[in-house]
Design a protein around this nucleic acid. Structure first.
Lengths: 249, 249
DNA sequence: CGATGTGAAAAACTTCACAGCT
DNA sequence: AGCTGTGAAGTTTTTCACATCG
């Protein structure tokens, strides 16, 4: 009724931006990373079964996800990794950089500012903000921390498209309003509050306390479910690390 | 994942631990926090409409979520906050502390170790681990960083029920195996890898790069939708990242 | 043959709308 | 009168299973 799912005869890029289920988008990013690793290991192709196993996803679901971005598989063989990576990057909007502004350079914010996983993946942290006079003016990774009141000019100036909020809860809504007022339409919120935004703004929330509470629920459930202490399955593979992947400097 | 089927009309506490939709559990934690704030402000009761508005959720959905943990609302009035908080805490397994172990005290891990949002909410960080000799032995928030090889003894000794992994990607699976071998059944993974675990172990993943990629997708989509001039044409130019003149008025 | 791509069925989740309690 | 609790309808997401193509 809403969207006739038809993509056959049109340009894949256009189709891909039309209507990919939200749930699929989240997984595409995961496939992309795994494909990067496979490419580094020298693979040229993967089957849906292999990639699904590596990413912990049902193979049919994976194929359906990939079908949303166009058909790049070879029947009887699998997917050509390089081509698939290119297509995924294009779909996810990673073919040009997204300038990121980070507001709140406290405990968590400082760590985020130094997280090399961003810049290395097309998300250069381009502006830092805080209200604390002790922080305003310092450099982190070569970027000066500016005062929050400068958000409008600096975001416009530097073409910020994504804002990250890592302030204390009570400050978050105000900061959010500033970002939105500056034209930022996508926000990643680490503060423990629910942000109110106009409908054209996309907010994703990362809430550490909530994650732990969800796990606590499962601890309780497992504990109740059965005294399964019987199977003390201790297969501790000593998988010591090897190459450096690079997450934290 | 064992799937205990069915549910019936029975004791709320037992029912609540039986089969609450995963999606609801995630929201219950959010309601709980908001209820805490309301209680601080002196409210005694809330209606589903109020609480729904504050948490950005559909009121009917909220009522259904709460119905899974038993009926604690008063028709014509709303929910008694104190009672609801108590019930939520019990459901989420927050009525007794969950000892948390954090592995990886680098950039992000250090921030997590210092994040006061945990201890204050029933999740005392009880053990810290790393492999780096420069880190092993230091104190963070009064806790000594131990070597990763001590995970089994120390986790058993301190009754750790939840593990958080904030290591570089390549080290994560090995650390995970150690935790699982030590009896930890719930893991919060910040490393950019998909962990392979036996089915009785619950893993939740917080992946910052993926979150940004999801937002990048939305940036691209909005950009297309808004001004349908041809960004569509796939001209992948290398470095045109300045964009002065900008995205928006 | 082997793996993709995809209708169609199944499951999960959300929303509606209203009966029923206070 | 007002608000909860919930069956039923609606929507999205997952899974199945198989025709199809290289």
């Amino acid at each position: 009724m809403t969207k006739p799912p038809q993509a056959g005869s049109e340009d894949a890029a256009a189709a891909s931006l039309r209507s990919i289920p939200e749930a699929s988008v989240a997984r595409l990013a995961v496939y992309l990373r795994m494909l990067g690793e496979l490419a580094e290991q020298g693979s040229e192709t993967v089957s849906s079964d292999e990639l699904a196993a590596a990413t912990g996803v049902n193979p049919a679901k994976l194929r359906k996800d990939l079908s949303y971005i166009g058909s790049y598989g070879i029947r009887g063989v699998g997917y050509e990794i390089a081509a698939l990576v290119r297509q995924l990057e294009r779909t996810l909007g990673l073919d040009h950089l997204q300038a990121v502004a980070l507001v709140g350079v406290g405990n968590l914010g400082h760590a985020l500012a130094g997280y090399s996983g961003f810049g290395g993946r097309g998300f250069p942290v381009t502006a830092l903000f805080d209200v604390d006079p002790d922080l305003v003016g310092i450099h982190i990774n070569g970027i000066i921390v500016e005062h929050v009141r400068s958000i409008p000019e600096i975001c416009a100036e530097r073409g910020v498209t994504i804002g990250m909020i890592a302030t204390p809860g009570p400050a978050a809504q105000g900061v959010c309003d500033l970002l939105v007022g500056s034209g930022v339409r996508c926000i990643l919120n680490f503060a423990p509050v629910v942000l109110q935004v106009p409908p054209e703004v996309e907010v994703r929330k990362v809430d550490l306390a909530v994650e732990l509470q969800i796990l606590a629920f499962h601890v309780a459930r497992k504990h109740l479910a059965g005294q399964d202490t019987a199977t003390l399955d201790s297969r501790v593979n000593g998988h010591a690390a090897n190459g450096s992947g690079g997450m934290l400097p």
